[in-house]
Design a protein around this nucleic acid. Structure first.
Length: 323
DNA sequence: TGCCCATGGTAAT
DNA sequence: TTACCCTGGGCAG
């Protein structure tokens, strides 16, 4: 269930630890045996994320496309590192509140806290790094659809919605169906595509933000939080939104995505006091404006947050601030 | 300890 | 429209 930010982080792991070295590809679970044999022994030459999809290019021109879906996950083990960041992408660099450095220290400690050479990193909606005393490579845990193994690192994929070998043409076709991802291609062009797509549709903006053909990478959490941050009613048809409002939604998505990629967490309350910000980092609870807060008081006006199923997903909003 | 649900998209029906 | 993927966190008991 990772939203877009996690997939970019996962692609970065492959970039750092799996490119330009032969990869043994197997399917311990068996369901990807045929695909694995097409890729086995080749080198990965490129790792890309577009929205919630990830693409690994192999040196003979074939690609592996993976979509984690609601509970897919990658487990990395071996000589790998967690992505320690400077939090520079979260817009706080240079400010006086020290949050960026707090965050960097937090992640550094995770990566270096007596970390042995062999570590295990689970990347799904949350990230967990733990020492791994086992021998290398470790036994697959659970139903491993694909195992990618190099001399020093291993990545196990479990429970994906999509996992298939694609030709370059098929990759192009898949990406062509996706809306813009702020971290792929020209962000300004992405903004124009997003604005045009939203403003011609009668569909409620809450549905458009979740539509991967309109914009890539937004999931149920970011959708709810973006709409609250913009103080927009989720049911307003896209075509009725003022252009400035749609542009502001895109720019806020760019901001939240960058924070997510830098921190590995969906931090959506960036206007908190320093104290509350540390609490939000420390505990997973209470870190959102409206997501998963049905019945609880709005953090701004106190009105009970509403929840309604829309398009098969739960939508949360404040009936007063987003009237 | 067991049950339910979840930060999705695909494919069968 | 519904089943599937078949995991893991939260929570009731």
């Amino acid at each position: 269930m990772p939203e877009g930010h996690s997939v970019h982080r996962i692609a970065r792991q492959f970039e750092r630890h799996f490119e330009h070295t032969p990869v043994a590809v197997s399917s311990p679970q068996g369901r990807f045996a045929a695909g694995a044999s097409q890729l086995d022994g080749h080198e990965i030459v490129r790792s890309e994320a577009v929205g919630k999809q990830m693409f690994l290019e192999f040196d003979h021109g074939l690609w592996l496309r993976v979509h984690l879906g609601i509970y897919g996950a990658w487990d990395f083990a071996g000589d790998i590192t967690v992505d320690a960041t400077t939090a520079s992408a979260n817009g706080r660099m240079g400010q006086t509140n020290q949050r960026g450095t707090d965050l960097a220290a937090h992640e550094d400690s995770l990566a270096s806290m007596g970390a042995p050479r062999l570590t295990r990193l689970r990347m799904s909606e949350q990230e967990k790094l733990e020492p791994d005393a086992e021998s290398f490579p470790p036994e697959p845990i659970g139903a491993v659809r694909v195992r990618l193994l190099t001399r020093t690192a291993v990545a196990d994929l479990r429970g994906p919605t999509a996992c298939e070998v694609q030709t370059p043409e098929q990759v192009d076709a898949t990406i062509a169906k996706l809306g813009p991802d702020p971290l792929v291609g020209d962000p300004a062009a992405g903004e124009e595509r997003f604005v045009a797509a939203v403003r011609k549709k009668p569909t409620p903006i809450a549905l458009l933000l979740m539509d991967q053909a309109v914009v890539s990478g937004i999931g149920n959490v970011y959708r709810a939080e973006l709409l609250f941050r913009a103080r927009q009613n989720p049911f307003t048809p896209g075509k009725e939104l003022r252009e400035e409002v749609v542009r502001a939604l895109w720019r806020d998505w760019v901001k939240l995505l960058n924070i997510g990629v830098a921190t590995g967490q969906m931090l959506t309350m960036d206007d908190l006091s320093d104290d509350d910000y540390r609490k939000a980092l420390a505990s997973r609870a209470d870190r959102h404006w409206v997501y998963h807060r049905a019945g609880e008081p709005c953090r701004i006006c106190g009105a009970p947050i509403l929840m309604q199923e829309l398009g098969g997903r739960k939508l949360y909003w404040c009936p007063v601030d987003q009237a």
